[in-house]
Amino acid sequence: MHLKKILLFAPFLLLTACGIPLLSKKGGQQPHYIELSTSYGSSIIRLYDETPLHRDNMLKLVRDGFYDSLLFHRVIENFMIQGGDPNSKDAAPGERLGEGEAPGPRIPAEFRDSLFHKKGVLAAARDNNPEKASSNCQFYIVQGQVFTDEQLDMLEQTRLEGREIPQWQREVYKTIGGTPHLDQTYTVFGEVVQGLAMIDTIAAVETDSFDRPEKDVKMTIRELTRREVRRLEYEDNQL
């Protein structure tokens, strides 16, 4: 395995369906949402204000059109879908991807105890650097799997170095699912609030020996307007 490779380590099998609350305003601050679209549909993602470095980096790239026509180049069912490598834009069929970066440095890790790898979260990929700093462009969205208490106990002993999973997070992993072994190791900085079915659909596509989809899955990402965000808030309040 190349240490430079921008990917998730230990592809542990993981997940199911979920419903995720839309909004969390702090001090009246306007929340930031992006729409990720593919030929399989679209998803609305809220970016977390608790991870401002990752949020602002994503917004800059989105506003610059960086992600337009890039691929989901690494897909593992019951685990995650990964994209954002700039080398994927004009990649030849079967070409191995995952080492591309945007101009600029890595993004410092922003681990938060309250942000964890439940199904539908947006997180930053990274290479094997000791600071666990994030790629400045590559990301993944968790599909994952549902866990039992026994499986979570085993993870605590073998993969989490004795760190206990809080009970409220356990309940999420036992119902919605996710990838708990990645917590506090990769930065989580957003979550899908609409269109989770697209993630399940992409996760199920046929892939080659490098986990690249046999048929290219191209993406576009745009930032939602204030009017669209207000409509999301209104629709959420009607539920």
Rank of each mutant, 00 (worst) to 15 (best):
W168N: 14
K25V: 11
L3S: 11
K218F: 09
E191K: 05
F139W: 14
S43Y: 02
A197Y: 10
T16I: 11
L152C: 09
Q138M: 05
E223R: 01
A123R: 01
T148Y: 07
T158S: 13
A203Y: 01
E99Y: 09
Q145F: 03
I45L: 12
Q143N: 12
D127T: 11
G104Y: 11
D200C: 05
N87H: 10
Q184C: 06
G144Q: 02
H32F: 07
V142D: 00
F12Y: 08
L53M: 12
Q184Y: 07
M219K: 05
T207F: 02
L70Q: 11
Y48G: 00
R46I: 03
G177V: 12
I202Q: 00
P21F: 06
T187H: 03
H32Q: 14
T38G: 05
E156N: 04
N57K: 12
G100R: 00
P105C: 06
F111K: 02
G178F: 02
P108M: 12
G178I: 03
K218N: 08
K215M: 09
Y234F: 14
L97C: 07
E156G: 03
Q157S: 11
A17D: 13
M80I: 15
A10P: 02
L61N: 11
C18A: 12
H54C: 03
N128H: 13
L61W: 08
M58T: 15
A203T: 04
D236N: 13
I141R: 05
N87W: 03
V62A: 11
H2E: 13
I176R: 04
L115T: 02
L3N: 10
G65A: 12
D113C: 02
L232R: 10
L97T: 06
D56C: 06
A124G: 13
E223G: 00
M219L: 15
P130T: 13
P86W: 05
L196G: 15
Q167M: 08
I221S: 03
T51Q: 04
R112A: 01
L47I: 05
